[in-house]
Amino acid sequence: MVIAKEFDYQRPTTLEEATQILAGHPGSARVLAGGTDLVAWLRDDAVAPDLVVDIKAIPDLHDIKIDGDTLHLGSLVTFSDLINSPIVSEHAPLLAEMAETVASTGIRNRATLVGNICSAVPSCDAGPVLLGYDTTVHMIGPDGTRSIDINDWFVGLRETACAGDEIVSHLTMKVPVHGGVYVKLMRYAGEDLAQAAVGIVAYPGDEYRVAFGAVAPTPIRSTRIEDALRSKPLDEKLIAEVVAMVADEISPIDDIRATAAYRTRICEVMLERGLPAARERLDGTGPAYGTRLI
């Protein structure tokens, strides 16, 4: 539908200017990056801001950099950037594997990783993957900069720790040697939102991170499953043991995309298939990144 409500538009060229503009319009301004969520919401009348603040003219926000084992991702990095970045494919190919499941090229050329976690829908693909790393979200607001752990980012359904007058500048992620998988249940092979998803990162020393998407109001980590896996050889028995824990770790709902029962069932299947794949990728074996496990 046509965007029924009119609004003003500003395009600041520095983060500081952007935060000042936001501070001047408390509660009535929205930040625009890729726009693939925001413009759709404007069309649906789901949001009705008086002002849209386009941050795409701000330099440096497209950066993808590696410093030691710390990966820096600017807030305008798109999913296509993740897929095409040699740095990402060398240091964190899991991000590209995840990005390839997001919508389609025409959306990925525009939609940003940071926008995905700012929209914070339960099915956001970035969530279960970023939760697999030591990820920090860096923001700037009227009172200066602030950094928070990704584990504290998702506050509720479509709610994050970012205040209305703050803008995310970038993410940093610790990317030591690791292997990961992102397994996503979709209704068919083509573009779809996740009906359920699992992100798994395996680190040396039988250390794992396990997170789920679309089975709770926010992406969720399962520290109980991580604890159960810790320091034990990953064999069939251990996998069966943690698969049996899945139902208690997630709280899926019945909706148009899937029933809770099917979501639970497939989370079990995804964990069962994903754990060995993550482990094998850590060892340099295993299926190539991008191979779909379900």
């Binding site: 389609s104 209704r187 068919y188 092979a189 083509g190 573009e191 779809d192 148009i256 995309r257």
Partner: peptide, 9 residues
């Protein structure tokens, strides 16, 4: 939510 086939399907 009304899925019609894509080039993958």
């Amino acid at each position: 939510d009304y899925k019609i086939p894509t080039a993958f399907d």
